[in-house]
Simulated assay, not measured.
Amino acid sequence: MESQDVQISKGVEWAAHAAVMMIALPEGRGLKAEALARYHEVPTAYMAKQLQALSKAGIVQSSRGAHGGYRLAKAATDITLWDITAAIEGHGPAFRCTEIRQNGPCGLKKTDCRKPCQIASAFAVAERAFRDSLKTVTIADLGAQVVQNSRPEHLSDVGHWLESETMPLSEKT
């Protein structure tokens, strides 16, 4: 049997990086999806899709037009990794029990399956722990770690890049 890795989508990674970068934006300024995609060397259309999902979830705000772009819609301390994950991948459970214990020659009757199976229960406990863990990490925490673990020259380069790429946002949303 071929093994498959279970993984969070690239979209969650890209959205989290974009959100952390937006912490450094000056008031009233934003970044275009194209600039964020270029910075991270990812496809613009795919970055735009992730930013639209963040916008729909109220994590970022967007402005359209020549002076359009994205910026955080609320404080970085109020945005968790779970918020970003849920915005990109949805709120539904990662594991969905299909009740295969009712299949096959010795399958249980539906009436014998009033309680969730032990496998579904174990996955539910693990998923709750995973979500609870992501809810404890804010993008402000991540931003502080980036600053703490980066060389001053790199932070200066990022600052100069942001200065050249940010633009005043229009009032149109």
Rank of each mutant, 00 (worst) to 15 (best):
N149H: 15
L142P: 06
E13T: 15
V158E: 11
D83W: 01
L25V: 11
R71H: 05
N149E: 10
G159L: 02
Y39P: 00
G159C: 00
K74D: 01
H91Y: 06
K109N: 07
A24P: 04
T111Q: 13
M47R: 00
E127P: 03
A37P: 04
E153Q: 15
A120P: 03
G107N: 05
H154T: 15
K56L: 05
T85V: 03
T173I: 10
E34P: 11
I139A: 09
R71M: 05
V147D: 03
A73T: 04
Q118F: 00
L54W: 11
A129S: 13
A53K: 15
L155F: 12
P116Q: 11
K10R: 02
Y70N: 05
C97R: 10
L81R: 00
R29I: 01
A76K: 10
G90C: 04
V20K: 11
L72Q: 00
H91R: 11
E171Q: 14
R71S: 07
I88V: 12
D5F: 08
Y39D: 02
H154I: 14
M47Y: 03
V42G: 01
I23W: 13
W161T: 13
A35V: 12
S133K: 09
R71Q: 03
G69L: 06
A15P: 08
E165R: 14
P43T: 03
G11W: 00
H160Q: 12
A35H: 14
P152S: 08
I79A: 02
E41V: 15
